[in-house]
Amino acid sequence: MAMRVLIVEDEVFIALDLESHLEMMGHEVLGIAANKNTCLAQAEASRPDLALVDLHLAGPSSGIEAAAELRRDHGIACILVSGSLHELSPGDIERIEPLAMLAKPFSMTALTDALETADRILARRCGG
């Protein structure tokens, strides 16, 4: 099922590559946010089904906080993307409740798997 996705990633090439692959898979990319504030503003405006959030964002704002606030204030679920997923504490995971986690560097296969997992969980939530 096609999803409406917000990309939260501060590395421009990675963000563009993600966008291109998501579109090839038939999903709609609502925007690319490089920091927490933009991310929350775009989420508020466009109401995505899903956000793809990098844990390490530029500046003082952290991807962990962005993901936690998306979940708490907007009810938007995430796929977490990072080269250091092991830095997540059990408390972070509890706050964020990620649909899937994607370890960098990721292959398109891994990205596809993560999106399919997320899609399944979201479909079940809507249905149930």
């Binding site: 590395e11 090439f13 990675i14 993600l18 370890a103 560097p105």
Partner: peptide, 11 residues
């Protein structure tokens, strides 16, 4: 390193 590799692959 992981992030940079991802970037190269993305480019």
């Amino acid at each position: 390193v992981k992030n940079s590799l991802q970037m190269v692959a993305s480019i």
